[in-house]
Structures are given as C-alpha cells and as structure tokens.
Amino acid sequence: MNFRHKFVFLLPGLLILIGILIFPIVFTVRLSLSSWDSFFPGLDFIGLDNYIRLFTDDKRFWESFFRLSFLSVTTVLLQYIIGFSLALIVWKDIIFQRFFRVLFLIPMMTTPVIMTVIWRTFFHESLGPVNDFFSLFGVTPLWLSDETLAKVTVIIVEVWQWTPFMFLLLLAGLLSLPKEPFLAAAIDGASPIRKFIYVTFPLMAPISIGAIIIRLIEASKIMDTVYVLTSGGPGTATETSSFYIFIKGLREFQMGYSAALSFTYLIIMIISLTIIAKLLVKLLINNN
C-alpha cells in the first residue's frame, strides 16, 4: 500500500481534530498577541503586551483565581463528604433503597440556571422563605449582598447541584467492591467504623480520586451559578476566573486581552490539576 492512500484515510479524522481542537487553541494564542477590541477589531501584533499586563497590572484576575481555587476546593470536598455518606447509606440494604437512590439524583437532573433562579428566590433578603425562617429569631442575614455570606450561598447551591454526581460515582464504586474483604474484616475483629477506615476507604481510593478530579475540573468552571445568583457581587466578592474572563471578553469586548487570560488560565489549570492528581494518588493509594 502506498503512503498517499493511508493519508487519505486519516484525513477526515485529522481535519475534524484540527477544526475543533487545534485551531481554536492556536487562534486563541494568536488572538492573545493582538490588541483586538471593540474600537479596533482585527489581528494586529503587539507581542507579549497582554501577558505583561496580566502578570503585572491585573490584581482582579489573580484575586478571582484564588477565590475560584477556594470555592472549587471547598465545594468539591463538601460534595465528596456528603456524597460518600449518602452512598454509604443506600449501599446497605435499607427500606426504600431504590426510592432514595433516585431521590438523591434529582438535583443533577435539573437545569443549573433554572435551579439557581429558584435558589436566588429562596435566599432573597426581604422576600425569600429562608429569611422568613430566620426572622423568627430576629435576624435577617444578607445572603446575597454580604461579602462572606454571598460566598456561602454560592457554595450551598453548588454543593446541592453537584453532590448527586459524586454520589452516583461513589455508589457505583461501592457496588463494584469485592464482598470478601468485608467478611474477612468482620472476622478479624474490625468494628464497623474501623472497617470503613481500613477497608472501605482504601478500596475506594482509586474511584475517589477519579470522582474528585472530575468534579474539580467541572467546579473550576463555575460560571452559571455565580452569574445568576450574584453576578460576581457584591463588588467582586464572588467573581471567579471564568466569570472575569467572560466580563473582559463579552462585556468589554477586549478580545485580545481575554484570550491572553484564557490561555494563561488553561495552562495554570493543567499544571495544578496534574499536581493535585499526583498528590491524591500518593496520599490515598501508596500510603496505606
């Protein structure tokens, strides 16, 4: 067979790959080297000016980045703890097992934007049912307009929305575990709590790592919740990286600069998630 024929067969796949993956990245990089904005659209070349501005003169981006790190780590940890607990509850034979398994999945099946609108109504400071309840005790917390509480509200909604996903992965993991080690552990004198610490948890480590990484990737893209709930406010108290990039790109139309932000963000995410995955493996699997 001659070489040209092989190339023809590879071509469709290659074209699609170039079209949907490589071109956007290359274009983003090229865009980040230009000053494209609403006044002067077009691909001029300004060198690394955007990157210099990003690293020296944009406190807001870095603040939003650390805020994002805090929010995603907190929400994913909470999701993991709650999701694991729920999975453990319905793992055992309990009454209405099937009913609970489905019930716990409902939040994941709803549309995030719509549910966030409903949550915003819940937490509305003068009209929402949450403050109706709190006013019984004579307090009306500012759920959406206090800097700290707004973060708490975002965390609550994110955890509510995505715990089911964690629950689903962990329950599937639990159901796939071999039964025998648990038999052995009971005979070997392990109480239920110790059985969890020394058998269930270590056996679940690989699945846990997978679930946590998947959720971290998803959580670091927090956007719709923040957009609907607080629009990044009050001030910039709940502004995350993706929301900030969205503002720079699609509100202020600084296309070149937002491309530089996106590309930097992508690189940071790849590096940090790789490190986190390695650390988790070291912590949970190699160190038993």
């Binding site: 071999p178 025998e180 080690p181 552990a185 070997d188 270590p202 056996l203 480590a205 038993n288």
Partner: peptide
C-alpha cells in the same frame, strides 16, 4: 478466625 474456600485477603494491602 476463619479461612475460606475462596482465597480471601485484603487486595489493597
């Protein structure tokens, strides 16, 4: 203490 017909041990240890 019990030894089973299947070889039951802790796979992660």
């Amino acid at each position: 203490a019990m030894v089973y017909q299947q070889f039951i041990n802790y796979p992660h240890l």
